[in-house]
């Protein structure tokens, strides 16, 4: 959206070019292009099994194999890989990616506080983690009382909040949120999305994958459809301001 107050210089945060990825003999993502610029909130909408999660995993280097270029902040993080899913993920994360995966992927034994700390493992974020924690807690109010509780004992909605909070703790320029409302009661799911939309992005960008268009419609900067491993719609629009 072309808002005048955002007339500051915008960068391309994520530039995906000709990305194909898959698992073994299965090719899930077909020659996909995607551009995301800073300060932007993008929704990716598509049915189950059309490659939303695989796209995110490919950006994080977690798929079985991938080809094509992925530029994150101008650094090439996509490489032609054919093995070792997850082998370079931590390097991509240090470049400024925060992936909030589908299914919570939490550390059962750590307390909520340690968990939030663990989101800020990158060196710069670690030094300012207390301010970041305050910001995250301001968004997810219910977590304030649970700081000393092991995450394994929380309910599903609280776990999702912790998982998303962990992602937001990172000093990232690109947040990938995979199905934030999945498996939650509609009300809680809606609240989680509200909270995500309330996050101040500043210089970074956020991509949210959702099955439910209604939750995102009109509240993100653009919505891209995903069908059978390809993006439909304004996938590679140029920046609002050059």
């Amino acid at each position: 959206m072309n808002k005048p107050e955002h007339a500051v210089q915008r960068r391309i945060v994520l530039d995906v070019n000709g990305l194909s990825a898959g698992w073994g003999p299965v090719r899930v993502i077909h020659d996909l292009d995607l551009k995301v610029s800073s300060g932007e909130r993008v929704g990716i909408v598509g049915l189950n099994g059309h490659g939303k999660s695989t796209l995110f995993q490919a950006i994080a280097g977690l798929t079985g194999w991938q080809r094509g270029s992925i530029l994150l902040e101008g650094h090439q993080v996509g490489r032609t890989r054919s093995q070792g899913p997850g082998r370079y993920t931590h390097l991509v994360v240090r470049r400024g990616l925060a992936l909030i995966p589908q299914g919570d992927e939490i550390f059962h034994g750590l307390t909520v506080e340690e968990h939030l700390d663990s989101g800020a493992f990158t060196r710069r974020a670690w030094s300012e983690r207390s301010e970041r924690k305050k910001k995250v807690l301001a968004i997810f109010q219910p977590l304030q009382k649970l700081m000393k509780v092991p995450v394994g004992r929380l309910s599903g909605g609280e776990r999702r909040m912790v998982a998303i909070g962990r992602g937001l703790m990172a000093d990232a320029s690109l947040f990938l949120v995979d199905e934030p409302s999945l498996g939650l009661a509609p009300k809680i799911g809606k609240a989680v999305i509200e909270a995500l939309l309330a996050v101040e992005l500043g210089d970074s960008a956020m991509v949210i994958a959702e099955q439910n268009v209604g939750l995102l419609e009109g509240r993100v900067d653009r919505i891209i459809g995903m069908h059978a491993g390809k993006l439909k719609g304004e996938a590679s629009v140029l920046l609002p301001h050059a």
């Binding site: 994080a60 977690l62 993920t89 994360v93 995966p101 750590l110 340690e114």
Partner: peptide, 15 residues
């Protein structure tokens, strides 16, 4: 400790 609990999630947070 994070890696003890869940190595996959650990790589996602940059470990």
């Amino acid at each position: 400790r994070a890696m003890m609990m869940n190595p996959h999630a650990a790589s996602i947070v940059g470990i």
